[in-house]
Design a protein around this nucleic acid. Structure first.
Length: 787
RNA sequence: GCGCCAGUGGCGGAAUGGUAGACGCGCUGGUCUUAGGAACCAGUGGGCAACCGUGGGGGUUCGAGUCCCUCCUGGCGCACCA
């Protein structure tokens, strides 16, 4: 008996299950049921990602409470899930907004803090003005908030961070061990971590006791450096310029929003070139990122596109240090180094090595590795989240609470008016007497990013009622999750955070688990045609009718234009409600359709024909078993064995669409060959194979035919039956198919060729030419080559 | 711009380097009648044929949808990352 932990990404309790959830959970359910039938020890839990902004926003809008709203939604969605006939371990259920979950998260926070993996600092952070909270770097997409789409502002705030960068190297390297993850997700994570190997070089500022640290991946081009550029937020800037001067530059930069036009402001300082006896100018430039490397670069215009553009605009010298034609500038490829006395004649990689060696000897530079990945900012200025177990004294110092002082319970009686953080305004909760120092103290009013909640829920599922976060032995036994199924939209966020958490907890609690998810499967979206009136108003699919080749809105008789199939969304109204589908077509047909028309990792287009044909398949199977006759043929058993084998192979490979094809193929055969199984024992095998896909139908037929619902185990395959004795052997001449012959497996080549040469079609192809070669791929194909 | 993935009938999609188009949808004939959101039978890549066909062009191979090179198109991701 093997353990199989099968998990689908838990939903946010927004109020209703949508079709995307249905597809996600049906895929997982099929796997879970299959493994149970195989006799595996299956863990298949479900819970609620229950903290988060929608609850708070809804509460403000509808004058309710986030907790009540959330609990109502959970109840409703749970009812909906139950209708989907999912085989879930409901006794493992958890909701992240409940004390019995988040108090243990507070414990984890304390331990992360003690391990140096949680810290507080003033930082320039991403502020979402609409949700009125800070966002992590991962949650800003194209300069906009991931949820609201509002343009993110930069603010300096004192914030809690998790030190994910501590694991940058491991998070990167371990991707190679995740052989059962989609390459695409791994590539995305790799790019996000963004490892660069290069050097850190010190540039001395002339006449000042200051140095500029610069990270570069191209130390080989140091002789071509003609300027230095730093970010407006570089710490040097505030030492040189006055606040109003800085503001002016910032304003100037902010006018350039969308295009990448480069702008620079020359500073009244110069740097000494680290090798050459020359001074180079220093600019503040808009294209220098302040959160990458040291926030400073040296510009080598001849061999970098951005530096080239900048140099042209500000008329800076362009010095070639890699051999190339002038017309190729900026030349960024490898080549022979020139104009660089120390490394002339070398190629890029050798020059880099030699230059760094030189810098290290001179102690003005060193080898350096840089990551794009930043530490994870976890403070959120919102009420509906896990309280951070920290208190502040009036002198500004803080203390992270002891575990014995937990839980810090989120107060229910808050005033949510949308103005500011409700916890900040809740004086009674906020102000306490510190039990240790007896001093007045104030609770941390920020709450944790909800991605913290989902970073360890798969661990809590193992023991959801335990009086501590988890049981080490259980974690080591049941993790990693064997199959994790969900949408690709979490490729970076949730999946990277969870990987970090697993590694951090491993180090803190001495666990044996390195990675949380052994296999990741990302299911495709469900799409549907879109419908619009001529005025541009979106119309729901159920509100239209087809008439005389035209599409008409039922109520108003307006003509409707059909648009392309797009991801189901409320805004485009191209949604199908699971409840209505279940009512009209039944659970088994719905389950069939979720995996029928395309492979589970690709998009599935919702069509009426599709769901209808799934329904027809259910009826067809029911009808078949209703025929009270048993009649089999010689190869019936072999066909069934092949069917079982195919279904099993395709479930394990997540090729669930092929399972549906296998089912059709089987019933096509049975009906065409007039084979009746009814209460023949073979029916049991077939019904067990159907059970993961259509459990309701399968159980009912099983009960009708065999008077018992007890599910036997997955049938063992009789391999000897799988070896077909008769095969159709293709015969090629010069690699082109000419004919096929029926023969037995294991034929003797010499003998079979004799009869092949007698076939007219073959004779006509060979004519009087000499056969110079015969390629016989035993039991597969024969290819005859003539002169 | 960089990276990844993908291009196969009218459509969704099958094919460990070995019979391209399994299976489904749709469509075309026909059968039946409890006139159905049915069911059943036959057909369905192109071409009268020999033959031709997996985005285009090269290559490797006895044999290529599959491997290699190159170009085109589409999707996704990242994007001034020094």
């Amino acid at each position: 008996m093997q353990k199989k932990y099968i998990l689908e990404m838990f939903p946010y309790p927004s109020g209703n299950i949508h079709m995307g959830h249905v597809r996600n959970y049906v895929i997982g359910d099929i796997c879970a049921r299959y493994h149970k039938l195989k006799g595996d020890e299956v863990i298949h839990p479900m819970g609620w990602d229950a903290f988060g902004l929608p609850a708070e926003n809804a509460a403000i809008q509808f004058n309710t409470h986030p907790q009540d709203w959330t609990f109502d939604n959970i109840q409703n969605m749970k009812d909906q899930l139950k209708k989907l006939n999912l085989d879930l371990d409901w006794e493992r259920e958890l909701a992240t907004c409940k004390e019995d979950y988040y108090q243990y998260q507070q414990e984890l926070f304390i331990d992360l803090y003690k391990a140096g993996l949680a810290y507080k600092k003033d930082a320039l952070v991403n502020w979402d003005p609409e949700d009125k909270t800070v966002l992590a770097n991962e949650q800003v997409i194209d300069g906009k908030g991931w949820r609201t789409g509002a343009i993110v502002e930069q603010k300096v705030l004192s914030q809690w961070f998790f030190k994910i960068t501590h694991y940058a190297e491991e998070l990167l390297n371990d991707l190679d061990n995740l052989t059962l993850w989609p390459e695409k997700v791994k590539t995305m994570q790799k790019n996000w971590i963004g490892k660069s190997i290069g050097a850190e070089i010190k540039f001395q500022i002339i006449d000042k006791d200051e140095q500029l640290n610069i990270f570069t991946t191209r130390p080989d081009t140091i002789y071509g450096a003609t300027f230095i550029a730093i970010s407006i937020n570089h710490k040097l800037v505030s030492k040189i310029l006055k606040a109003n001067e800085i503001d002016l530059i910032k304003k100037s930069f902010s006018k350039i929003v969308d295009n990448k036009e480069k702008q620079g402001f020359l500073l009244d300082i110069k740097c000494q070139h680290p090798i050459l006896d020359k001074e180079i100018p220093v600019y503040i430039a808009n294209f220098v990122l302040d959160n990458y490397g040291e926030g400073a670069i040296f510009g080598c215009p001849a061999h970098d596109e951005r530096d080239y553009e900048f140099a042209i605009k500000y008329n800076l010298p362009i010095i070639k240090v890699i051999q190339c034609d002038d017309t190729d500038l900026p030349y960024t490829k490898d080549g022979e180094v020139i104009n660089s006395p120390l490394v002339n004649g070398l190629r890029k990689s050798e020059a880099i090595k030699k230059i760094i060696d030189y810098f290290e000897k001179k102690e003005i530079g060193k080898r350096s590795i840089n990551y794009k990945l930043r530490d994870w900012g976890v403070s959120r200025q919102r009420y509906w989240g896990c309280p951070i177990p920290v208190i502040y004294y009036e002198d500004g110092s803080f203390r992270v609470l002891e575990k014995s002082e937990l839980p810090v319970i989120l107060p229910y009686d808050v005033n949510l008016n949308g103005k500011g953080n409700a916890l900040l305004n809740h004086d009674k909760w906020r102000k306490i007497i510190c039990p240790k120092t007896k001093k007045i103290a104030y609770r941390e009013t920020d709450t944790l990013d909800t991605f913290v909640d989902s970073s360890w829920y798969y661990i809590r599922f193992l023991d959801n009622k335990l009086g501590k976060p988890f049981d080490t032995k259980k974690v080591n036994t049941y993790l990693p999750v064997d199959k994790y199924i969900g949408g690709i939209e979490h490729a970076i966020l949730h999946l990277l955070y969870s990987r970090f958490f697993m590694k951090a907890l491993r180090d803190i609690y001495k666990l044996d688990i390195n990675e949380p998810f052994r296999q990741l499967f990302t299911q495709g979206m469900i799409t549907h045609k879109t419908y619009k009136t001529q005025k541009g108003e979106w119309v729901m699919p159920k509100d239209i009718i087809f008439k005389d080749g035209k599409i008409i809105r039922q109520k108003t008789k307006e003509f409707i234009e059909e648009g392309p199939s797009e991801k189901m969304s409320k805004s485009k109204k191209n949604v199908i409600e699971p409840d209505e589908i279940l009512e009209n077509y039944g659970i088994d047909a719905t389950r069939f359709f979720m995996i029928s028309d395309s492979p589970p990792d690709r998009e599935l287009e919702w069509t009426d024909e599709g769901i209808q044909s799934s329904k027809n398949l259910v009826r067809r199977i029911e009808r078949y078993f209703n025929v009270k006759k048993t009649e089999t043929k010689k190869d019936t058993e072999r066909v069934i064995e092949k069917f079982i084998n195919n279904i099993e192979k395709n479930i394990l490979g997540f090729s669930l669409n092929k399972c549906i094809a296998d089912i059709y193929t089987l019933f096509n055969y049975l009906e065409k060959e007039k084979i009746y199984l009814h209460d023949n024992i073979i029916s049991k095998k077939v019904l067990i194979c159907l059970y993961p896909f259509a459990p309701k139908m399968s159980s009912k037929i099983m009960k009708d035919l065999f008077k018992s619902e007890s599910k036997d185990n997955w049938p063992n395959i009789n391999n000897s039956l799988l070896l077909e004795t008769n095969i159709n052997l293709p015969i090629q001449v010069h690699g082109k198919l000419v004919t096929t012959i029926e023969t037995k497996k294991g034929y003797i080549e010499k003998d079979i060729l004799k009869s092949i040469y007698k076939i007219d079609k073959i004779k006509n192809k060979i004519l009087d030419r000499k056969v110079i070669k015969v390629i016989n791929v035993q039991d597969k194909i024969i290819n005859i080559i003539t002169s």
